[in-house]
């Protein structure tokens, strides 16, 4: 029962905190560029303003365009309910299967691309296809990294994988660490940050498909995209950096787990911001070369694992 409440709290916290995380990232980015920048709460202001605006749809759009924003939010909440955040184990173990999580991530991506085509705008459509292609290029690398980790830990449950990695019980820690690096690279590509994307510019991959959204629907899309960033980072934390999370359901352990989780997320987003500020945007067509590098790292992890290093 406590676990179910915990899962619901996680999902609610995700929705509530998503704009805060993106707001802090924007703030940090501004500081790096020695600008004053928007306040940390700016994204909350933006969203509350959007909720007051009119909802517009193009004349050719159908149910897909209307259903996408709530569906994106709903799926992200569902995934987050299964990911261990403050605890070492998954709050709802039935939702913690890593293959289920990867395939659930596909559903919003599919809707995202379809809704872009649905508008009838060629401009949004191109963005939609690019978003899909990122999935094509990132997913195999992600699953190869996970394959090594699954073999090393002997389970496909995110919580149990974290448990094994966290207690150094996994076979071949070097291979697992390398798989973690590959997975982290793949996650970074999923985040939609420079050098692959410039989410704020509203003309690049991730927000291009949103060009026909407005009002409450656009607010939903924005929240959902922030939520996706947190979900991806949390997945990485839960599997490869679970150290310090609560292994039992006591108040001190969970408080420590929460603090450490927040610290890890802040550090990861800080590192991401550094990356974002030192690189230029790459051409879309070069994206493929870089994902091959990630596949290469994951393949190296596999070799290490097979050789037993």
């Amino acid at each position: 029962m406590i676990l179910i409440i915990l899962a619901c709290l996680q999902a609610i916290l995700l929705v509530a905190a998503a704009p805060l995380v993106s707001g802090s990232a924007r703030w940090m980015r501004a500081k790096f560029q020695t600008r004053k920048g928007p306040p940390i709460l700016q994204d909350y202001y933006d969203i509350s303003k959007l909720f007051k605006r009119q909802d517009l749809h193009t004349k050719d759009s159908s149910f897909v365009h209307r259903l996408m924003p709530p569906l994106f939010i709903g799926v992200m909440m569902l995934i987050f309910m299964g990911i261990p955040v403050v605890t070492r184990f998954s709050p709802i173990p039935l939702l913690g299967d890593v293959i289920l999580i990867i395939y659930l991530m596909v559903l919003p991506r599919l809707f995202f691309a379809l809704s872009a085509i649905d508008t009838g705008s060629s401009y949004a459509g191109v963005g939609g296809i690019r978003e899909l292609l990122i999935g094509v290029l990132v997913e195999p690398a992600m699953l190869l990294a996970l394959f090594v980790t699954i073999l090393a830990t002997g389970t496909t449950n995110v919580g149990e994988m974290g448990m094994m990695v966290g207690s150094f019980a996994a076979v071949n820690p070097v291979a697992v660490a390398l798989a973690g690096v590959a997975f982290a690279c793949a996650c970074y590509m999923e985040l939609g940050k420079l050098p692959y994307d410039l989410a704020e510019a509203e003309q690049e991959l991730q927000e291009g498909p949103l060009s026909e959204y407005s009002g409450p629907s656009l607010a939903y899309c924005k929240i959902a995209l922030y939520m996706k960033q947190i979900v991806v980072v949390s997945l990485l934390v839960a599997i490869f950096i679970p150290f310090g999370s609560a292994t039992e359901l006591t108040v001190p352990a969970m408080a420590l787990g929460l603090v450490l989780y927040l610290a890890k997320v802040v550090v990861i987003f800080f590192i991401c911001t550094i990356f974002e500020n030192v690189v230029a945007r790459v051409r879309f067509k070069l994206f493929g070369h870089q994902t091959w590098t990630v596949v290469g790292i994951a393949a190296l992890a596999l070799v290490f694992f097979v050789l037993g290093i």
Binding site: L110, L114, I117, G128, G135, P140, L144, F147, L302
Partner: peptide, 20 residues
């Protein structure tokens, strides 16, 4: 099986493109 798992993952992602 590593080859097969990666192929199946790639297939999954490509199927989405195909049916979108």
């Amino acid at each position: 099986f590593a080859f097969a798992v990666v192929s199946l993952a790639l297939t999954g992602a490509l199927t989405v493109v195909c049916f979108v």
